[in-house]
């Protein structure tokens, strides 16, 4: 059984905690079922990167943001989108390439977008969205707003030049941005040790730019929430960016085609023994906020929700072929053919 422990005292009330537990379960189930649709029936194509194991990072941090804050992430984006309140329907429809998808079937797994939720996308060039996040924060400060932009990226992005250029300018201009590095230990198949000369990511991402940096157990959802809340308060107060290294672990391969030969089975098994969803469920049980029966009921509801989302996606229309030329530019688009 997963150990019940959390490094933080309760930072939320019962209602919020149950919402978070439910969101983590939803992300897990959504991806489990999507993987099945990918493997059987060829309903999902292209690259498909799963978030399983990392759920507390997105749910805990997004859980303390305001509705008018912005979120941007990399290509492993299903979890962040669902944590931000994107419906399973819109996500699943996108995976199936349908016009009802969150990006109208034009983005796919790596490019989920939701303007209504301030979700500025999944982005698929490693590190490329980090300047975008910084620019969003620039706009917020330019207009004198007290909103923040939260930017997620993997530890593999720490070796990408664009990230460092953005970190420098964010610090220089004290922009309201929170960088959350999800250190799941592997950049595709390359471990941090094999790619990175200085292993303490804070030294490179925070210290080097005079940005406050903190390393935490990202799988402790309430610690994730507390740390993000503090960073958001700093940003709203005009004190500039924060760099959070959230240590976590992904259960699945880098993408669906990755058998994961670069790591030992024991390493994965040991991580799964401390599955963060079970850990949090047990924490809430110990607090008397949930019992087994309620948790099972929650899981059943989620199963139904995901099945309904799949049915919705399957019954949705694909984009018509003339939509190939739609939404390229705001001005009428003239194909140069």
């Amino acid at each position: 059984m997963a150990q019940a422990k959390t490094e933080a005292k309760p930072v939320v009330n019962r209602t919020q905690a149950l919402v978070w537990l439910r969101q983590m379960m939803l992300i897990r189930r959504f991806e489990e079922r999507a993987e099945m649709l990918y493997q059987k029936g060829n309903k999902i194509g292209g690259f498909f990167h799963q978030y399983s194991g990392q759920e507390p990072v997105a749910v805990g941090s997004i859980g303390v943001l305001r509705e008018d804050d912005y979120i941007i992430t990399a290509y492993r984006d299903h979890g962040h989108a669902l944590a931000r309140g994107m419906s399973a329907r819109a996500g699943m429809s996108e995976l199936l390439g349908k016009v009802t998808g969150c990006s109208r079937g034009k983005g796919g797994s790596m490019h989920f977008f939701d303007v209504e939720k301030g979700f500025l996308g999944g982005h698929a060039i490693v590190g490329s969205h980090v300047p975008l996040a910084t620019g969003v924060a620039f706009a917020l400060k330019y207009r004198g707003e007290d909103r923040v932009c939260v930017c997620y990226f993997g530890e593999g992005a720490i070796n990408q030049g664009s990230v460092h250029e953005a970190l420098n300018m964010a610090a220089l201009w004290k922009l309201p941005v929170i960088y959350i590095v999800e250190n799941n230990q592997y950049a595709m198949g390359t471990s941090l040790e094999r790619s990175t000369a200085v292993l303490d990511l804070r030294l490179r991402g925070a210290t080097a730019y005079g940005i406050p940096g903190i390393t935490i157990n990202g799988n402790d959802i309430e610690l994730m929430a507390k740390t993000t809340r503090e960073a958001a308060n700093r940003a709203r107060g005009g004190e500039g960016p924060t760099f959070i290294e959230a240590k976590t672990y992904r259960y699945k391969g880098h993408s669906i085609s990755d058998p994961g030969k670069y790591r030992l089975r024991e390493e994965l098994d040991s991580a799964m023994k401390n599955d963060p969803i079970m850990v949090y469920q047990n924490v809430l049980k110990q607090r008397g906020w949930i019992d087994e029966e309620t948790a099972d009921k929650m899981r059943d509801e989620i199963k139904t929700e995901v099945e309904e989302a799949i049915a919705f996606a399957e019954h949705s229309e694909p984009p018509s072929l003339d939509q190939l030329y739609e939404d390229i530019t705001v001005a009428p688009f003239i194909p140069q053919e």
């Binding site: 500025l120 300047p131 620019g135 620039f138 706009a139 207009r143 300018m169």
Partner: peptide, 18 residues
Amino acid sequence: PISEEGFAGIGIGAAMAG
């Protein structure tokens, strides 16, 4: 600073935010 990729991206992000 001399960071063309960085400030090009910052411009794009700012444009996305209005």
